[in-house]
Nucleic acid binder design. Structure first.
Lengths: 197, 197
DNA sequence: CGCTCCATACCGACCGGTTAGTCTGCCGAG
DNA sequence: CTCGGCAGACTAACCGGTCGGTATGGAGCG
């Protein structure tokens, strides 16, 4: 049996990341001590600093994972072979479902950006920008094709929708009346309805 | 010359609140030390703890101010003598303008709620709820009157719009191409367009 | 008018406690 | 024997909050 696992069979780095994610979402980055993270992961500081350069690194890893996941999904929907209305609707709904499925990541994402070191912050912003622009391109495509209204600049439309995604971690509760898919359908519908010519 | 002012003529408690607001928005609540606040306000800790019970109290004051302001404005627009479409549009646009005019407060508001003590958090949540429900009532009124679509539950519509307001502090820059009023008109327009039957 | 006295406003050294990060060394696998 | 993987005691830097002390303006009184 390798030393890198305990009874759970999950490697130490991933256990640390999972514990950090949960705690960051629960109490916030600054209110979570390194000691708490390692205790939750069942190791000690030595292990943490063996795999990660700093507490900040841990946060950055959370961001990197979320960004990679969302970008991949958006690309898949945007590249699909379907009318632009359908592709936008699918992408808009998917980001909602994915966000709800990873609400911890989402609340960390939007609440703790300012805790990243300047260089990591720059990197994260660059990746977010890529994501935003891919989404905007979808809106612009529909506008040029005449199926979406041009009354509102595409940038604003994208920020409008992401605002609601951003906001999810504030109000969505898994034990509420709506399933993630239902919320996603409603929010995507609102977006598409706002874009009707 | 009274001791409660320096050359600026602004009383100490307000100077402390202003300094705290700026610093909380800039670096976050936990990253702002009490020492930094009192230095920025040109006083010492003795003065701060003379007027405020704790650092937490300072944060609570920021929340109280924002909530009072927004609630007053919403009530005024909602009680106006105009068609419901107009009242909702005005209220939706106004909250955007007011938020942009106080972007520091806004970023603190949505990023630092979890730093409030449980009782203060409860109080703030209760006031937010009142605000949310007043807004929702407007949407429901329009839905019952048949001027708004009933495809989406009113609660979700409200969360959708507030998501975009919430999001403003992330992307809006005063030196950008759009004035606060233009952004507000666009966002209110998106809301009303999404609500077309 | 002048003197006393006190509430208010504020100062700043200090305290107990916490924190991120370091470092030395053990341990078991290959 | 060696080396990655980890333990855990340790440190230096803060941090929020306290507290005894000081200065000032005005109220009350003779």
């Amino acid at each position: 049996m390798a030393r890198t696992t305990d009874g759970s069979g999950i490697p130490v780095p991933q256990r640390l990341l999972a514990a950090a994610t949960r705690l960051f979402a629960e109490r916030g980055y600054d209110r979570t001590s390194v000691q708490e993270i390692v205790e939750a992961a069942g190791v000690t500081k030595g292990a943490l600093y063996h795999y990660f350069g700093s507490k900040d690194d841990l946060l950055h890893e959370v961001y990197a994972r979320v960004l990679r996941l969302q970008q991949e999904r958006l690309d898949a929907f945007a590249d699909a072979d379907a009318p632009v209305e359908q592709r936008l609707r699918d992408a808009a709904a998917d980001v909602v479902v994915t966000t709800i499925d990873n609400l911890d990541d989402a609340s960390i994402f939007f609440r703790s950006m300012h805790h990243l070191s300047p260089e990591k912050d720059k990197q994260v912003r660059a990746e977010r920008r890529r994501y935003h622009e891919r989404f905007r391109a979808l809106v612009e495509e529909g506008q040029k094709a005449g199926v979406f209204s041009t009354a509102t600049p595409a940038d604003l439309v994208v920020d409008y929708h992401f605002g609601s995604v951003h906001h999810l971690s504030t109000w969505y509760r898994p034990d509420g009346p709506l399933t993630p898919q239902q919320v996603a359908d409603h929010l995507a519908d609102l977006l598409l309805r706002a874009l009707r010519p």
